[in-house]
Write a protein that binds this DNA or RNA. Structure first.
Lengths: 190, 190, 190, 190
DNA sequence: TATGAATGAGACTTCATTCAT
DNA sequence: TATGAATGAAGTCTCATTCAT
């Protein structure tokens, strides 16, 4: 228990620091201090910096995917689900899970992390693609659309507009007009 | 002349290596070898690794923005421009300019690079937003749309669908169905 | 009682591990595991790794010297004693007491261990030298020999031939022809 | 040239320090200081401490074997050769080549070094054994001796008596009575 | 008394930067 | 101007020792 709790404590501390400074920019000592423990103690729980990083990525990814699934499995139309997902994704970026940035800050991204990032993005896209197909079947969307592309429009728009507003302009998640975002995606800009 | 040429040579060599290995993962010696010169020579042209990195980022950003401007200033409807931009962006990712990845591989991303990335993305978004406004004025788009958001839909969709297909699934830029992408954005998915 | 037994247990466990891995290559945890106890417990009996090492060396040395004395105090001619000693020394190397190797595996050999090694070797040499003198008196050996050198011939030959055969060629102690060895030493090679 | 000279300089400096303190007890910084260079420079010439150690052992071993061969190939009887070899071996221990001690001071002795030590000792023993055989053929030695064992008597006696006198009692190599040593070996102690 | 989690000093190694040639 | 050998600061990881339980 206490042992496992501490493992998680260290993982979360590591996540915070990796998030802020990236893999290379993070010193084990930083993580130890963030967790309020000694440097050597980190190594009692994780064998290497790399392992700690990988575990932190996995941990946050799991958390993320679970939340996405929960968000998208709520009742309602695809429009409702989209708005819920957009809100969640925006909150996420603002507040807590550092997964996106963590993936962008390691020198090894070009090798191992590419697959991880892909997998996660693919899984979310797949879930959304499935929902799009169902919505087509139920007549909520027009029949001639490419579901995969439709899912890309949704995810892409959120990442481009919503997340960036929050990250770069310090906007609050509640300031985003999700209804308008849904309108423009569902009705088109033309 | 020759001096200035060599500066650019080094800059381009640095861009290639930074792109592949990130800031921390790149050794000055790697850059020197890539440029076919000695390690000390790099320091005759740039005072530090950090300066070289910054200059490489700026250089690639300039090139990128210039190309985007050229692409979007061609004659035609917004739809035409969108397709041209999507093609360019996709080619870009596939072939050469390492700007996106460079931004993801430095330990300083959270601090200085955030602003750079923002600025570039903002500039492209601004250009597109301007074109959207013009298209609204010319009746090509409906009047009630938020131009900024419309631009985000376009950029976001390209990044999510097109770039990912190319990056992660090794698709060729010419395999992407840009017409379909334009349709879904202009007509909406609803 | 039990306390003193445990001290010896730890000492023997330490001897085995030091023997295999040397001073620096041995972790306190290895010794604890070999002794079937916890790491902290080792420190209840010995104040430091260095003390434990020193005590282990002393312990094995005592045991060794006692055995050598017993072997050499048996009845018989010097030739008999030599053969008995050669057998014992060969068995020793093969089976159990790690004293020689322990002495070769510490970083402190050049300083403190030199004296220890010397002392032990000297004591054996002295005992043998004494026996040689007695044998001279009893007419078993010729009168003009240097007893110290004669002892060196005996010890040196055993170490060079017998021990090496066993250590490096995995010969069995009983495969050695001790009679032939005695012959060559007593009669000379000339 | 200068580069190769420096490689050797470092190797010799490393040999001296390894000799005094053993593998584990030697810090790269010690070697650098002994060589009068910076710590990083050592790594310009050798990739790791282990490589440097291995190279130092090999280097000293080569030097040693060459010298032994030269010593034993001089004209004269076996007795003459023995005396020359004993002198050389004694000088060696006193003055310069740290091979024996180096081999005794690493934690890896039990694994890799065993073979090296064996090989060297075997080679010397083989050379001597060959000379013994030749001496038997020429009637210098009696016919019924075991040449391998005779060689062991010679090497063992030198190591036990001569080297120890020098190492532990600080005797000078010229103080040793090599004639007496030859007598006792050739005529026997009996 | 016995334990093992926690600790931090210290070692190896890397690499940006300097500078003599 | 061009070079690459030299350097040492700094980071990762190990492990002897301590101490609360």
């Amino acid at each position: 228990m206490a042992k496992e709790d501490k493992r998680i404590d260290i993982l979360r501390a590591a996540s915070r620091v990796f998030y802020l400074r990236g893999f290379e920019g993070t010193k084990i000592d930083d993580i130890a201090k963030e967790a309020g423990i000694g440097k050597g103690t980190v190594y009692e729980y994780y064998h290497s910096k790399q392992e700690l990083f990988d575990k932190a990525v996995s941990y946050n990814r799991e958390q993320y995917i679970e939340q996405v699934k929960a968000t998208l499995s709520q009742d309602g139309t695809l429009r409702d689900k989209f708005i819920a997902f957009a809100k969640y994704q925006t909150e996420l970026v603002k507040t807590h899970i550092p997964i996106f940035n963590m993936m962008c800050t390691s020198k090894i991204i070009a090798r191992e992390m590419g697959a991880l990032m892909l997998e996660q993005n693919i899984r979310v896209a797949e879930i959304l693609t499935g929902l799009v197909k169902k919505a087509v079947d139920q007549g909520e969307l027009r029949e001639d659309i490419n579901p995969e592309m439709a899912a890309a429009v949704m995810i892409g728009t959120i990442n481009q507009y919503s997340s960036k507003k929050v990250i770069f302009f310090d906007a609050q998640p509640e300031d985003i007009d999700y209804e308008q975002m849904a309108d423009i995606i569902f009705k088109g800009i033309g």
